[in-house]
Amino acid sequence: MNESLRLRNTLMLVPLIGATGSLVNALGLWLMFMVVTSAFGLCMNALRSRLLPATHLPASVLLAATLTSCAELGAQAWSLQWHQHAGIYAGLIALQCVVLERSDFFQGPWRERWSLRGLIGALMVSLGLLRELIGYGTLGNHLPWLAGATHADWQGWLLTADGGLRLATLAPGGFILLGLLIAAWQAWHRPPPSH
């Protein structure tokens, strides 16, 4: 694994752990990630040939910050409740765009780009779903926030009357759950011992 791929994957760990306390946060941040990285890739592909090599980094920083700020303003206008719960993690999309640009991600094949976006989305949504199930004992709590509903009475499907294990919704619980999932994956795909 080369250094740029390792850095790219490490930077996605912060929103994966921090913003996946619930399904709504994970799904919303992934949708924002999809929109911003797609727009960034299209804009940089159009600008790259017109820029001097020394100006690629400042241009990509400026473009990523602009697109992420516009997406955050749009999220505030669409659903302020969701934006308040997303916290600072939406701002990290700009950093991720710059790192992806520096590792020539947007110049690669489109299938690789969409498979990485899909993998990130699958990880975020599944971790958000598990953390909400374990932590709150609900499924789809505050889901109308993503539809822009401000006074929705629907609070999701309540699975347990007394809630769940609150640790799962916090960052340490996210690390613990992710570690358990990685251990289960490695145990499942371990080759059988030869006797």
Rank of each mutant, 00 (worst) to 15 (best):
Leu52Cys: 09
Ser49Ala: 10
Ser69Tyr: 01
Asn2Phe: 00
Glu112Ala: 07
Leu143Ile: 09
Trp114Ile: 12
Gly128Arg: 01
Ala46Arg: 11
Leu7Val: 15
Val99Cys: 15
Thr138Gln: 07
Gly179Arg: 02
Gly87His: 04
Arg111Trp: 03
Trp157Ser: 05
Ala77Lys: 05
Glu132Pro: 11
Ala90Leu: 15
Leu23Gln: 03
Ala187Lys: 02
Ala187Cys: 08
Gly140Leu: 10
Met1Ile: 04
Pro172Phe: 00
Val36Met: 15
Ala122His: 00
Val35Gly: 08
Met12Lys: 09
Pro144Glu: 07
Gly140Ala: 04
Arg113Pro: 14
Met124Tyr: 01
Leu116Arg: 01
Gly21Ser: 15
Asn9Gln: 13
Leu47Arg: 03
Leu167Asn: 02
Asp104Asn: 07
Thr20Asn: 12
Trp114Glu: 06
Thr150Asn: 13
Trp154Glu: 07
Met44Lys: 03
Asn9Phe: 04
Arg113Ser: 06
Thr37Asp: 14
Ala26Val: 13
Arg48Met: 12
Gln186Pro: 13
Leu146His: 00
Pro15Trp: 03
Arg102Phe: 00
Arg166Leu: 10
Ala183Lys: 06
Val14Ser: 13
Thr68Val: 10
Ser115Leu: 14
Trp30Gln: 07
Gln107Asp: 09
Phe106Pro: 14
Arg131Met: 06
Trp110Cys: 08
Leu51Lys: 02
His83Val: 02
Pro109Leu: 08
Arg117Phe: 00
Ser49Met: 12
Ala26Trp: 01
Trp188Gln: 05
Gly28Ile: 15
Ala71Asp: 03
Leu7Cys: 08
Ala64Cys: 11
Tyr89Met: 15
Leu95Val: 14
Val99Ile: 15
